[in-house]
Each structure stands twice: as structure tokens, then as C-alpha cells.
């Protein structure tokens, strides 16, 4: 009797919860949003790349002209190189964040407060960060050069006007901004490791560094992979600070893919070429994501 009742209930439940009309009603709003605002546009970008178009007037189909121009556009490749350079720096800094997180996840006083303090820059708008760091780098009144002058450095650099250092001068605030984010993620992952595993290693006589290096870090390999993807893709599509602080300048020395695309479209009004750049940016971001996943793929997930 009871069994029958339960079975009937499950059947009833299945029927109600697989009602096609209801499912459609719940899925459709989100699906329409993501389709019209994200997926249809990225396909259109690829198509617009085939046009000669100033954004307002006639669209003229010119085939692959924009794309072939892109392949020989040295400024585009320079900006692509800068984007990859940022990606490399971001990945290297992940190592430092991991180290900080390992320290933080040990029995350190105030670790909860620390990780929250580190997060603060991440919460601020890029305009605020850019404007603040432009002041930090101000040639005469910024804290950076006033500090350098006070310790006796003559002729401190013109951070944002010097073509050889401007890119690195912008990388610094970007890394400053995201440090707390990655530290937080690593910290959470490290805290998820069962205490018993660490304790077992300790009893076997492993030193704290051995425990960190041989046990903790391998156990969070999955999370590390995710952060590598996030850092690389985030860097490749990076735009905000560069656009606000230097606008890609001086003389293209800090141009990245996204800022180059924006300039072509909304400054030069070359929407066709801008679209081609935007489409390339998309292809590069997706290819690199796929590549990293493939390169770091392991057959078995870490179990504990």
C-alpha cells in the first residue's frame, strides 16, 4: 500500500515537474536575454567584419578585406603581444597569490581580516582605480615619485609617458586590483582540504613547507586550473585601466586588443574593421580557454 502510494506520488511529481510549457516559461526569459545580448552579437561581429561600414551609413560587403588587413596590421599584432604579456604577468603573479594563501591558511592570527583587506581594491570601479593610480604616478606630485625623490633617486621615471615602462606601470595596478580575488579563491580551496590529511602528513614528520608543496597545492590543482583560465582570459580581454589611464598610448606603447578594437570602432568610426578586431579577440579568447583546458586536463579528479 505504502509502496503504491509512494510510486504514485513520484509519478505525479514527475508529471508536474516535466511540464514542457512551465519549463519553457521559466527558461525563456534568461535564454532570450543571453541570446540577444551575447550570442547573436558575437556572430554578428564576425559578419560585420566582412563589411565596410561607418556605423551609421550604408553597409558595403567587402569580403575578407578587413580580416586580411588585420593579418598584416602591425599595430594589431603589437596590441595582441601586449595582451599576452599581461596574461603572462597575471599567471606569474598567481604563484605569489598561492604562496600568500598557503601562509594565510596556516594557523595565522587575523587571517580572516587579512583576506578581506586584500579584497578591497577588487571592489572598486576601474575609473576610481585608474584615476587614483594616475595620481600615484603623477610625475611631480604623485606618491611614487615623491617617495623615489625622498630616497635620493634623481630623475624618477615619467611612468605613464615613457614608452618603455608604461605597460608595466599599468600592469602594477591591475595586479594590485585582482590580488585579493585570487588569494580569496585559493584560501577557500585550501580551507576545504580535510584537516585529517594534513594531520596525517604531520605525524609522518613532514615539514610545513613539505605539507604545503606536496599535499595542499596538488589537492587544489583543479582550482588552480580554473584560476589560470580566469587570469589568462581576463588579461586577454582587459580594457578598462588601459583605456582610462593612457588610451593605449603613448604611441601605442600600451595598446591591447580590446582598446585597439574600441579605438577603431568608436574613435575612427571604422565599424567594419573594429568588428573584425572584436571577432579575432573572441576567437583568441575561446581558443586559449580551450587550449589551457586541454593542456591541463587530467583523467581523474582529485578525490578526498
Amino acid at each position: 500500500m505504502l509502496y503504491d502510494f509512494k510510486k504514485k506520488g513520484e509519478h505525479e511529481m514527475d508529471k508536474v515537474m516535466s511540464d514542457k510549457k512551465v519549463i519553457l516559461l521559466y527558461v525563456l526569459p534568461a535564454l532570450i536575454l543571453i541570446m540577444t545580448i551575447v550570442y547573436v552579437p558575437i556572430i554578428l561581429t564576425g559578419y560585420y567584419g566582412l563589411l565596410k561600414w561607418d556605423g551609421i551609413g550604408e553597409k558595403t560587403f567587402i569580403g575578407l578585406d578587413n580580416y586580411s588587413k588585420l593579418l598584416t596590421d602591425s599595430m594589431f599584432w603589437k596590441s595582441t603581444y601586449h595582451s599576452f604579456l599581461l596574461a603572462a604577468f597575471s599567471v606569474i603573479s598567481l604563484g605569489a597569490y598561492l604562496l600568500v594563501s598557503v601562509i594565510l591558511s596556516g594557523k595565522i592570527k587575523g587571517s580572516n581580516l587579512f583576506r578581506k583587506i586584500y579584497l578591497v581594491p577588487m571592489l572598486l570601479s576601474s575609473v576610481a582605480i585608474a584615476q587614483l593610480w594616475m595620481k600615484v604616478y603623477h610625475p611631480t606630485n604623485g606618491v611614487m615619485n615623491r617617495f623615489l625623490l625622498s630616497i635620493g633617486v634623481e630623475n624618477p621615471p615619467l611612468w605613464l609617458a615613457d614608452t618603455s615602462i608604461v605597460l608595466y606601470a599599468i600592469f602594477l595596478p591591475i595586479i594590485w586590483q585582482y590580488a585579493g580575488f585570487y588569494i580569496l579563491i585559493y584560501y577557500a580551496a585550501l580551507k576545504n582540504i580535510p584537516e585529517s590529511l594534513v594531520e596525517a602528513a604531520r605525524i609522518d614528520g613532514a615539514s610545513p613547507w613539505q605539507i604545503a608543496y606536496k599535499i595542499k597545492v596538488p589537492l587544489i590543482a583543479g582550482v588552480i586550473k580554473v584560476t589560470i583560465v580566469l587570469a589568462v582570459v581576463g588579461s586577454l580581454k582587459y580594457f578598462d585601466l588601459i583605456y582610462i589611464m593612457t588610451d593605449g598610448g603613448p604611441n601605442g606603447a600600451s595598446e591591447v586588443m580590446a582598446s585597439y578594437m574600441y579605438k577603431q570602432a568608436f574613435r575612427m568610426n571604422d565599424f567594419g574593421y573594429g568588428s573584425a578586431v572584436g571577432f579575432f579577440l573572441l576567437l583568441i579568447a575561446l581558443t586559449v580557454t580551450w587550449l589551457i583546458r586541454k593542456l591541463t586536463a587530467t583523467k581523474e579528479e582529485v578525490q578526498y
Binding site: I34, Y39, T45, A265, F271, G278
Partner: peptide, 21 residues
């Protein structure tokens, strides 16, 4: 999966079509 992949898409690749839309 459709929503998750969207996270990797650079907003700059959507700007021009959205502008015109």
C-alpha cells in the same frame, strides 16, 4: 553550458552589434 560559456566571452566582441541593435 550555454550560460557558463558566456562567461568567457569578451564584452568587446559584442559592443558593435549591441550599439547598432
Amino acid at each position: 553550458g550555454l550560460f557558463m560559456v558566456a562567461m568567457m566571452i569578451p564584452i568587446h566582441s559584442t559592443l558593435i552589434p549591441l550599439f547598432s541593435f
